[in-house]
Amino acid sequence: QRITLKDYAMRFGQTKTAKDLGVYQSAINKAIHAGRKIFLTINADGSVYAEEVKDGEVKPFPS
């Protein structure tokens, strides 16, 4: 399943989102408010992988 960072954070909370991605909650808040195009893939085992689309390139998040 693929979902935006904002939607994932709204569904699970910023604290869990940060923990799942290995970053601080403040980084999640800042990324959402900056309007960054970050998409999360939720794997069947429950693990989460995030990618950011920037300038036409897709890069892992966090980099």
Score class of each variant (00 low, 15 high):
Q1I: 14
Y8Q: 01
Q14R: 12
A34L: 10
T15D: 15
A50N: 01
T15L: 15
N43P: 04
R36C: 07
L21N: 01
E57I: 13
R36E: 04
V58L: 11
A31Y: 10
R11V: 09
R11N: 07
F61V: 02
S26N: 09
I38E: 00
Y8I: 01
D20L: 11
E52M: 03
K54M: 15
A9L: 13
G35C: 07
F39A: 03
T4R: 08
A44N: 11
I28N: 00
I42L: 09
E51K: 05
A27T: 15
L40Q: 00
A44D: 12
G22P: 00
E52W: 04
N29G: 13
H33N: 12
L21A: 02
F12H: 12
L40Y: 00
Y8N: 01
R36P: 01
V53D: 10
I3L: 13
G46L: 07
T4E: 10
M10Y: 10
E51H: 07
F12W: 11
S26M: 09
A27N: 07
P60T: 07
D55R: 09
A9H: 05
N43G: 10
K19M: 11
K37V: 12
G56C: 06
I32W: 02
I28Y: 01
V48P: 02
T17Y: 01
Y49H: 10
K59R: 13
M10F: 11
A27Y: 14
N29L: 10
G35T: 05
K6L: 12
I32R: 01
Y24N: 15
A31V: 07
K54Y: 13
H33V: 12
N43W: 11
Q25I: 14
H33G: 10
P60Q: 07
V58Y: 11
D55M: 08
F61W: 15
R2Q: 11
G35V: 04
P60L: 06
T17W: 01
Y49I: 12
K6D: 07
K37F: 11
E51Q: 09
D7L: 07
I38K: 00
L5V: 02
A34W: 07
R11S: 07
K37Y: 10
N43S: 11
I42T: 06
F39N: 04
A50D: 00
